[in-house]
């Protein structure tokens, strides 16, 4: 029994790790840009296909391919900022609709480039850490957990301790007031898009050998993403990040210990609770709504 608990716990930590990376990127983009990026799941997918192309296709060493995936998807984020979100800044629904269009383009490109079938990716490592006979952690999963801890800690440090991190938080809390301090909102938007997209990309890249890579793999992210934005959209970026990591943990624990349907119910209940207790959760801090 204890073994089962420990094993399920490990699975949950792994799942929460990559979901957190995706969710945190999404709330970062929402916080700074004020748009819900519907294409976020497809950025995750794009990261996975970077591994398909580079690691499985061209035999590029795995971690080099992961780094390339991060950069590539980060640049997709920059492209979205420049081509979609900036021109549509004054249109409240514009960014959202454009991101849905971008989602479809990315999916179509994946289908055209790689087909609709699931792609097989050779395992990165077969090594397994065995805590006991029944409690085992594949090293490939450990990579994802380590990446999540390192990247999220780094992001935390960036937001709390560096000047550009403050600029990002200031832009999320009050873009006009931030501009009055000399902060270029375009620049903070770019930083947020690069980091947010890059985190989704690296999550997709690292998990690619562990999941079934297909053009529709981003879909499952959307529901989670929505809930995270609503639960997390409480004004401060750090608050949103804590909320999204907490949500990812709760959701994946419930999924692994019970099942996914119950996890969604618990997630939605949490969301309702947030909306009842703090209605401004819906669209960030009160003065922004």
């Amino acid at each position: 029994m204890l073994d089962l608990l420990a094993q399920t716990g490990l699975n949950a930590v792994y799942a929460a790790s990559y979901i957190s990376l995706v969710a945190v990127g999404l709330v970062l983009i929402f916080g700074v840009m004020g748009v819900i990026n519907f294409a976020h799941g497809e950025l995750f997918m794009a990261g996975a296909y970077a591994i398909v192309a580079l690691y499985a296709g061209l035999n590029v060493p795995f971690f080099l391919a992961v780094a390339a995936g991060l950069l590539f998807v980060g640049c997709l984020g920059l492209l979205m900022e420049k081509a979609l979100f900036r021109p549509l800044k004054d249109n409240p629904l514009g960014g959202l609709v454009a991101s849905i269009g971008f989602l479809m383009i990315l999916q179509a490109l994946a289908v055209m480039g790689f087909g609709v079938r699931m792609v097989h990716i050779p395992p990165v490592t077969q090594e397994v850490i065995a805590f006991s006979e029944k409690v085992r952690l594949p090293v490939a999963r450990l990579y994802v957990i380590i990446a999540a801890i390192v990247l999220l800690s780094a992001l935390w440090y960036f937001l709390k301790r560096t000047k550009f991190g403050w600029a990002l938080r200031a832009s999320a809390q009050d873009p006009e007031a931030a501009a009055l301090q000399g902060i270029s909102i375009t620049q903070t938007a770019r930083i947020a898009m690069f980091i947010g997209a890059g985190l989704a990309g690296i999550a997709g890249a690292l998990t690619a050998p562990l999941v079934s890579v297909n053009p529709h793999m981003g879909h499952s992210v959307i529901v989670t993403a929505f809930i995270v934005i609503i639960v997390g959209g409480v004004g401060s970026l750090e608050g949103a990040i804590v909320a999204s990591v907490a949500y990812a943990l709760v959701h994946t624990f419930v999924t692994t210990f019970w099942d996914g349907v119950l996890a969604d119910i618990v997630g939605l209940s949490l969301m309702l609770l947030v909306l009842i207790v703090k209605p401004t959760g819906l669209f960030g801090s009160a003065d922004r709504a």
Partner: peptide, 14 residues
């Protein structure tokens, strides 16, 4: 228009 979720010192340094 201070930054509500930043500390006093962070506001000033910004």
């Amino acid at each position: 228009r201070i930054f509500p979720d930043m500390t006093v010192e962070e506001n000033l340094r910004t």
